[in-house]
Amino acid sequence: MATETESHGDEAAHGGADAAHGGAEAVGMPQLDFATFPNQIFWLVVTLVVIYLILSRVALPRIAAVLAERQGAITNDIAAAEDLKLKAEEAEAAYNQALADARAEAQKIIAEAKAEMQAELDAATAKADAEIAAKAAESEKAIAEIRAGAMQSVEEVAKATAAEIVAAMGGKSDAKAIDAAIAAQLKG
């Protein structure tokens, strides 16, 4: 009981001190202590005006400028990239063109070489044919000569044989008659 009274006393003293200190403890909720309202409102208005001035004069234009600059840089970079892409495409087209040209050239060269070779081959064939024909003609001539030679030999042998036979039979060999007879036989 005594302690309780004491604590009451303490509290009273404490509360008194508080009341003397700020005057704010008159109401339980400091938010409803209307004595401090003008003070808060005044400082709030000062703060808000200061913040507004800082933001609208310095911070916001600067950030907006930075963002716009960045946007511009990005747009430029995109445009540059687009440009480079176009150039790359052009280069690719040129490369493809060159490739096609080279291919066509190669085809042409191949065709020419083929034609040349064909021509050479034809010429060689013709030459060979001519040679073969010439050789064949020569051979035929030789054969004809040989044949003619053979016929003559046959004639001479026949004449000699006929003269011998005539002589053996006791007749007188008449060269002229024998020749005529053999020619007639050979003509047959």
């Binding site: 200190h21 004595a35 401090t36 003070n39 709030l44």
Partner: peptide, 24 residues
């Protein structure tokens, strides 16, 4: 609720509209 009490910064008892307080 004690944390919400508005106190003058540099001592004193009264909170006038211009007093620098912890709000300030």
């Amino acid at each position: 609720m004690d944390q919400f009490i508005v106190k003058p910064l540099f001592g004193g008892d009264t909170v006038n509209w211009y007093t620098p307080t912890n709000v300030t």
